[in-house]
Design a protein around this nucleic acid. Sequence first.
RNA 1: GGGCGAUUAGCUCAGCUGGUCAGAGCGCCACGUUUACACCGUGGAUGUCGGGGGUUCGAACCCCUCAUCGCCCACCA
Length: 920
Amino acid sequence: MTTDGSITANLTPLPDKVGVEGLEDKWTKDWEKNQTFAFQGDRDRKAVYSIDTPPPTVSGHLHVGHVFSYTHTDIIARYKRMRGYDVFYPMGWDDNGLPTERRVQNYYGVRVDTSLKYDPGFKPPFEGTSSKRIDARDQVPCSRQNFIELCGKLSAQDEQQFKDLWIRLGLSVDWKNSYHTIGERARRVAQKGFLRNLARGEAYQKEAPGLWDVTFQTAVAQAELESREYPGSYHKLAFHKSDGSGDVCIETTRPELLPACVALIANPDDGRYKDLFGTTVLSPLFGVEVPVLAHPAAEMDKGAGIAMCCTFGDVTDVSWWRDLHLPTRAILLRNGRINPETPDWIATAHGREVYAAMSGKTTFSARKVLVEALRESGEMIGEPQPTTRMTNFYEKGDKPLEIITSRQWYLRNGGTDMDLRRQLLDRGAELRFHPDFMRARYGNWVNGLNTDWLVSRQRFFGVPFPLWYPVKTDGVVDYDHPITPSEDRLPIDPTTDVPEGFTEEQRDQPNGFTAEKDIMDTWATSSMTPQIVTHWDEGDGLFEKTYPMDLRPQGQDIIRTWLFSTIVRSHLENHVLPWKDAALSGWILDPDHKKMSKSKGNVVVPKEPIDKFGADAVRYWAACARLGVDATYDTGQMKIGRRLAIKLLNATKFALGIGREDENHHVGQSAQGVWNPADVTEPLDKAAMAKLASVVRRATTALDEFDHAKALNLIETFFWEFCDDYIELVKNRAYGTADDHDDVPSEAAVASARTTLGLGLDAFARLFAPYLPFATEEIWHWMHAGEGSVHRAAWPDADAYESIAADASVSILDNAGAALAALRKVKSEARVSMKTPILSVTLKAMPQGVRDIEAAFGDVLQAGKVTGEARLAELGDEDIAAAGIEADATQTAYDKAAADHLVLTSDAELGEPLAKKKKN
RNA sequence: GGGCGAUUAGCUCAGCUGGUCAGAGCGCCACGUUUACACCGUGGAUGUCGGGGGUUCGAACCCCUCAUCGCCCACCA
């Protein structure tokens, strides 16, 4: 659009019959060929809009939820592009972490062994040709580097599925900017980020009890916890007072931890146990002497009011153990089994016998052994009472977490440092959440942190810590003095790379070095996606043009992980918020309002609806849902989207087709090949432009506020009004004919209608472009062949339409439309064809309505096929009352307003219906 | 237990700072092959705005309270 609002147009042949089929294929190829969505990168930060796209888990399954949230992002990307931004819209693939590790293990029959060297000629035993699951024992060990290579190979296939879907859906991603979370750049950024954290003291290691998953045999972070209901039983056990004066009974759901008991704890104010504080008791079965102590965290109304503290049954035990300086008596191994070696603190023969019976067993089996022994000894009071309690699980695990002492790396995230916490809360306040109420989840989470971020995992596949440790002369590893590589070597794998100043022969030797074998939490990499995609610290200039980024779209379920951890990293590394806006999408619910998830088996594969309704239609369904609002999977909504796309094609074909035979009034081809705003002279046409200006203005505001659904609703509503009322009203005038009427419209009036139709449909192509990229591209090329893509065209400018409208009132369109509807109603109620002429009629409206209808009277009469006398009169009070509009004195202003667009007819006289064709 | 959100027509959902605020589409009923569209058009019917209080001239909207549903966090003796 030029500054005066004129729009050039080139005509191409129009199809006889339009349809949405085939558009996706056609335009996808065109966009690829012309690199329509390529990031240009030649302008400064202000002219760039950068998006931190969520990398989908490639080993996961596609479902319509993906389509939903990625469509929301794409709408914004396309909108910003039309607003003139150079849109930086990369795509990542998440192939780092446990899901991929498991998939690669099973697919190729391999597992990582960090003691192995990289073997360039390594061939996996399987290629996924066998459907048989490979037993873990038969998996062939390979080096981490070989595993990463296999992962890359397999991910490439999985990615292709996602990429195909994204392309089919019309995501305007720049495919040249894609990344892998296990790829070289991601590993380098994650390692560099960590080394910087380490240098600044933000990363530290600590030997401490922590939550541990016995299945995966790794520590897990607070952010990966999930509370689930878990069945258990209360066991009432009798401890014996050391002075022989009787028993103290406690209740526990973990009797198998009895050998790990280090104290009994009660509340200092609990009168029942006051006298016992400072004394000792002997544990049942094992006869281990433990103190009875007071601690305020003990709750009087829980269980017996006195608890046994074991090392470690739960996090409360840990805090008691720490606060009261209790000894450590761990009996649980990392694999979740009871240590086979009988601990030396169990002295009695009977105790050692019982322990021997439970040693080496899982906690579940050990509990059975112990309960039986307690029954026999009579030290269990009554039978176990079944109960259900909430227990912490690793989100990917199916056994309750245990607490195991281990050396782990932590990253400060405000969990222990209140000053940092405040800073991070401030960052949260600075970020614009869409919708805003999602902000509460951020604050909720940050305020609830109780530890720093545990970033080390005892897994094999992932980004390794870029660390070695010195081995002392006596062969002991000196963890306190980690050896780091220089940054220019990154990424490295310490299990195969050698630290500067050492040789490979010194690996694991006295006076040599040893590798840190742990890998980083997958979020330790994902938290740096902004730095990864913007080429942080690479010196190629991209970072300065794209960072801090503009938008982070993501799911609401990962606010505590991805969103929070990204803020942590950016805050620590770049001292800035990583993006201005965060857009949170809701869930997809199935038609029964259940959340769609693989485990529920109610997942819809996205290909189905796209095949059936078309990509534009599926996008329409997604676009109808606001951010943060759960949406029902609704094929009915997709049908409406499909209908909208078809309507858009038809309406445009019609408007462009009018006057094609007429050389002088070719729509879009005036002498200068433009739709010239000066040609819009008729009041009705100006009113349509006025309405368009208002819709553009409001839709633009809505999109600026990330309310794509509201913008769509505004555009769509006006589009249907434009079709049903405006086009119907001006149809005859645009044709320049007057079959049923004496007055042939003037050339100026014809040009006014045609120009308005052209300007209007041009505007709709642009307005719908972010939503229906395929249909709009199609019609765009009917109008603007050779001018490139609608997706690189300018977003409509409300001011330009407003100046075309000049002083015309929007209400002319409203009232002329209402008058046409009133005339249609006459025919509809008489059950005759809309073609039936009206011989005479009186139209009644409010005073403004009368003026408005008068301004478009010719069009109204033409469209209504009024051939005879038409009278225009003001509505009387009795008419208004008859229409059911109350005229209460105190509310006159508002009820009169309700009558503003009320148009009634009276004394209508219908002509002969045109001869009906006989039904065959 | 703490927090966030939702509850409007049979269905899916809009409804902004309290006054165009009882709305849209689907579905339903009736009519109509009209030179863009039968993948259609036109017209119509449909609601104690979850319940109960309160504030106000006026409440779907603000306040209190209860209920139901969903989610987040905490709850492991």
